[in-house]
Simulated scan of single mutants.
Amino acid sequence: MARVRTVAVIGGGIAGPVAALALRKAGIEATVYEAYPHPAHGIGGTIAIAPNGMAALDIVGVSEPAAAVSWPVHRQMMTVGRTRLELPALAGVGPLQVIHRSDLYRILAADAPIEYGRRLVAAVQGPGGVTATFADGTEVQADILIGADGVHSTVRGLIDPGAPGPHYTGMIAVEGQSPATVPEEAGTMVFAFGKKGFYLYGPALGGGTTFGVNLPHRPLTIAEARAIPPAQWKNTLLEIYGEDSPGGDLIRALPADELTVNGALHIMPPVPHWYRGRMVLAGDAVHAPSNSSGQGASLAIESAIELARCLRDIPDIEAAFAQYERLRRRRVEKVAARAAKTNSIKAPGPIGKALMPVVMRVFMKLAMKPEKTIGPEQRYRIDWARPL
Rank of each mutant, 00 (worst) to 15 (best):
E175H: 12
F191R: 14
Y201N: 05
L200S: 07
Q177W: 14
F191S: 14
F198D: 01
P203M: 10
A192K: 13
G212F: 04
G176H: 11
V182C: 11
G157H: 01
V190I: 13
R156G: 02
A204N: 13
G197D: 10
F211G: 10
A163H: 02
I159S: 02
I172W: 01
G194Q: 03
Q177D: 12
M189S: 14
I172D: 08
G212K: 02
G187Y: 12
P216R: 00
Q177S: 12
R156E: 00
P161F: 01
G202D: 04
E175Q: 15
G162A: 13
G187T: 14
G170F: 10
S178N: 08
P203L: 09
M171D: 09
G157S: 03
P216K: 03
G176N: 10
I159K: 00
P183F: 14
S178D: 09
G194V: 01
V213R: 05
G207C: 06
H167D: 12
V190L: 10
G157F: 01
G187D: 12
F191D: 11
G206L: 06
K195H: 14
G176S: 15
P161N: 06
E175S: 15
V190M: 12
V174Y: 06
F193M: 15
N214L: 15
A180Y: 08
Q177V: 15
F198T: 01
G208P: 03
G165H: 03
P179V: 11
P203Y: 09
G162L: 05
D160Q: 01
T210S: 08
G162N: 14
N214V: 00
G206W: 04
F198V: 01
I172E: 07
A204Y: 07
A173T: 14
L200M: 11
G165F: 02
R156W: 00
I172Q: 08
P164D: 07
V213I: 15
K196P: 02
R156Y: 00
G206K: 05
P161D: 04
G187M: 12
G162V: 04
T210H: 12
P179F: 09
H167E: 15
L200Q: 07
T210F: 13
Y168G: 09
G208F: 02
F211L: 07
G170Q: 10
T181R: 14
Y199N: 07
G202K: 04
G208E: 04
Y168V: 08
S178E: 08
I172T: 15
G208Q: 04
V174C: 07
V213Q: 06
G162C: 06
P203K: 11
T210P: 00
V190H: 08
H167C: 05
L200C: 09
V155E: 00
E184K: 08
F193E: 06
E184F: 09
T209A: 05
N214Q: 13
T169L: 13
R156D: 00
Q177K: 15
G187N: 12
P164H: 07
A192R: 13
V174I: 15
L200W: 14
E185A: 15
F191N: 14
T181F: 06
R156C: 02
G207M: 06
A180K: 08
D160N: 01
G165Y: 03
P203I: 11
V182M: 10
F198C: 02
V213W: 02
T181L: 13
T169P: 03
V155H: 00
K195F: 06
F193S: 09
G207E: 05
V190R: 09
L200P: 02
G197K: 10
